[in-house]
């Protein structure tokens, strides 16, 4: 952890060398998700509600997924750009250093300009917290925290899978975007609106709904079941098979060196 912070400090220092660029990119990141917000606004301007969810409820859901996604994007970005790390030989360098590979990969790329997106998430959060009509008792606050942390873990797991695939092929990994970018994009609405099959898929295969739909129902008071609130913890376990897959990837890399 101390080493990770050291890495973070050195990366912050280098990104601050180009201040204008940094702030422009941050602003850009902010605007990217702002257009998503605007799109939702236009939709609700026309339709008022979707499957019984009001605009402010959906905004709460949106801000939670955006926050957890941008946290993952900010700190786990090393995996997102992993094909580059392999092809430019940086991974060989990582392998000749006496530290855990995952830590080094994570630490080698921390994109602070992604804070633009995080700010967007937080701004929407601040708006949605009073507007959503949720009465903020302790358990509701805990639910939100679990949702964000759970989301961070699941998105990180997806990035790890993505990176592990890079060990086998560098082509055609686009389809992972369905789960990472798509998860963020479509997760702005509770997954139930897409129909039962989609919800099942995001429960049992890629557990995005575990930190989104189920605890969200508890949050806005549609259900009293305490299990819903705790499901994000189950979602965090998703990281375990992802880590296993990563180990397999490393073994493959060691035998092909490609």
């Amino acid at each position: 952890m101390k080493l990770y912070l050291k890495y973070a400090a050195i990366l912050l220092k280098s990104q601050m060398q180009y201040k204008t660029s940094f702030f422009m990119t941050t602003l850009g990141q902010f605007l990217v998700s702002f257009t998503v917000f605007l799109g939702m606004y236009f939709m609700f301007d026309r339709f008022q509600a979707v499957e019984g969810f009001t605009f402010s409820e959906v905004l709460l859901c949106f801000s939670i997924i955006l926050t957890s996604y941008s946290l993952a994007e900010c700190f786990v970005r090393g995996f997102d750009t992993f094909s580059g790390i392999i092809s430019n030989g940086e991974f060989d360098r990582i392998m000749v250093r006496p530290r855990n590979e995952i830590l080094q990969v994570l630490a080698s790329r921390i994109e602070f300009s992604r804070i633009g997106r995080l700010i967007q998430g937080i701004v929407v959060f601040i708006y949605a917290i009073p507007a959503s009509g949720v009465i903020w008792t302790f358990d509701k606050i805990l639910t939100v925290v679990l949702m964000v942390v759970g989301g961070f873990f699941v998105f990180s797991g997806l990035y790890i899978i993505y990176a592990s695939l890079c060990f086998f092929t560098t082509e055609g990994l686009e389809f992972m975007n369905i789960f990472t970018d798509g998860g963020k994009e479509f997760g702005k609405y509770p997954f139930s609106i897409y129909g039962e099959e989609v919800l099942k898929f995001f429960t049992y295969v890629i557990p995005l709904a575990l930190f989104q739909y189920y605890p969200f129902m508890y949050l806005i008071g549609r259900t009293d079941r305490i299990t819903n609130m705790l499901l994000p913890i189950l979602g965090m376990l998703f990281i375990l098979p992802c880590h296993l897959f990563w180990r397999i990837g490393i073994r493959h890399y060691k035998s092909t060196g490609s």
Partner: peptide
């Protein structure tokens, strides 16, 4: 590796050294 750098590109070399100190 003669053709690749292990130093962090945008920071003073001594900062890279400090980080390597912690890595090793």
């Amino acid at each position: 590796f003669g053709q690749r750098s292990q130093l962090w590109w945008d920071v003073p070399v001594v900062d890279s050294f400090e980080l390597l100190k912690d890595i090793y």
